[in-house]
Measured scan of single mutants.
Amino acid sequence: FDIYVVTADYLPLGAEQDAITLREGQYVEVLDAAHPLRWLVRTKPTKSSPSRQGWVSPAYLDRRL
């Protein structure tokens, strides 16, 4: 999967189903980028939180090589 970094805090609107909150600087794996406005991502697990999966706007993501 492609690795992206979150460029700004992402707080989903209440109406968005299956969306997750992301923090600036967080790394995520993009699982599904087929839709231009919503990408399915999975967060990297940390010592304090397990990995999470949900939909985010790709405008908040920047690809890492």
Rank of each mutant, 00 (worst) to 15 (best):
F1N: 09
F1H: 11
F1I: 08
F1A: 08
F1Q: 08
D2L: 14
D2H: 11
D2K: 11
I3A: 04
I3C: 12
I3W: 15
Y4R: 03
Y4H: 03
Y4A: 07
Y4S: 01
V5F: 09
V5S: 03
V6I: 05
V6P: 00
V6D: 00
V6Q: 00
T7S: 07
T7R: 10
T7Q: 05
T7W: 05
A8I: 08
A8S: 11
A8D: 05
A8L: 08
D9C: 05
D9T: 06
D9H: 06
Y10A: 03
Y10I: 08
Y10V: 10
Y10W: 10
L11H: 14
L11I: 15
L11M: 12
L11V: 15
P12E: 06
P12Y: 06
L13F: 11
L13W: 10
L13S: 15
L13Q: 12
L13Y: 10
L13K: 11
L13D: 15
G14T: 12
G14Y: 12
G14F: 12
G14M: 12
G14H: 13
G14K: 11
G14R: 11
A15D: 15
A15S: 15
A15H: 15
A15L: 11
A15W: 14
E16F: 08
E16R: 05
E16I: 08
E16S: 09
E16Q: 09
Q17F: 12
Q17P: 14
Q17D: 13
D18L: 06
D18E: 09
A19K: 07
A19H: 13
I20W: 07
T21E: 14
T21G: 08
L22D: 00
L22R: 01
L22H: 01
L22P: 00
R23W: 13
R23M: 11
R23E: 10
R23G: 04
E24T: 13
E24D: 04
E24F: 11
E24Y: 12
E24W: 09
E24N: 07
E24L: 12
E24S: 11
G25M: 02
G25C: 04
Q26T: 12
Q26N: 04
Y27I: 14
Y27F: 13
Y27W: 13
Y27A: 05
V28N: 00
V28I: 05
E29M: 11
E29R: 07
E29G: 02
E29I: 13
E29C: 10
V30L: 09
V30I: 09
L31K: 02
L31N: 00
L31Q: 02
D32Y: 09
D32L: 07
D32W: 11
D32I: 08
D32Q: 06
D32M: 06
A33I: 05
A33Q: 12
A33T: 09
A33V: 05
A34Y: 08
A34G: 11
A34S: 15
H35E: 08
H35W: 07
H35P: 03
H35Y: 08
H35A: 06
P36D: 08
P36K: 07
P36S: 08
P36L: 05
P36C: 05
P36V: 06
L37M: 11
L37R: 08
L37H: 13
L37V: 06
L37C: 11
R38C: 11
R38G: 03
R38W: 10
R38A: 06
W39N: 00
W39H: 00
W39Y: 03
W39P: 00
L40H: 04
L40N: 02
L40C: 05
V41M: 01
V41T: 01
V41K: 01
V41E: 01
V41A: 01
R42H: 02
R42Q: 06
R42G: 02
R42K: 07
T43M: 04
T43S: 06
K44S: 09
K44D: 04
P45W: 07
P45K: 08
P45M: 07
P45D: 08
T46P: 03
T46Q: 07
T46N: 08
T46W: 07
K47Q: 12
K47M: 13
S48N: 14
S48I: 10
S48K: 09
S49E: 15
S49P: 02
S49R: 09
P50Q: 07
P50E: 09
P50W: 04
S51N: 03
S51D: 03
S51H: 04
S51G: 09
S51I: 09
R52G: 05
R52H: 09
R52Y: 11
R52L: 14
Q53H: 06
Q53T: 15
Q53F: 08
Q53G: 03
Q53C: 11
G54A: 05
G54M: 09
G54R: 02
G54C: 06
G54W: 05
W55E: 01
W55D: 01
W55H: 03
W55K: 02
W55P: 01
V56S: 01
V56M: 05
V56N: 00
V56K: 00
V56G: 01
S57C: 08
P58R: 05
P58F: 02
P58L: 02
P58S: 08
P58H: 03
A59S: 11
A59E: 12
Y60W: 05
Y60R: 02
Y60H: 08
Y60D: 03
Y60F: 12
L61H: 01
L61E: 01
L61D: 01
L61S: 00
L61G: 00
L61N: 01
L61R: 01
D62T: 15
D62F: 09
D62I: 13
R63I: 12
R63S: 08
R63C: 08
R64I: 15
L65K: 10
L65Q: 13
L65I: 14
L65R: 09
L65C: 12
L65M: 13
L65G: 13
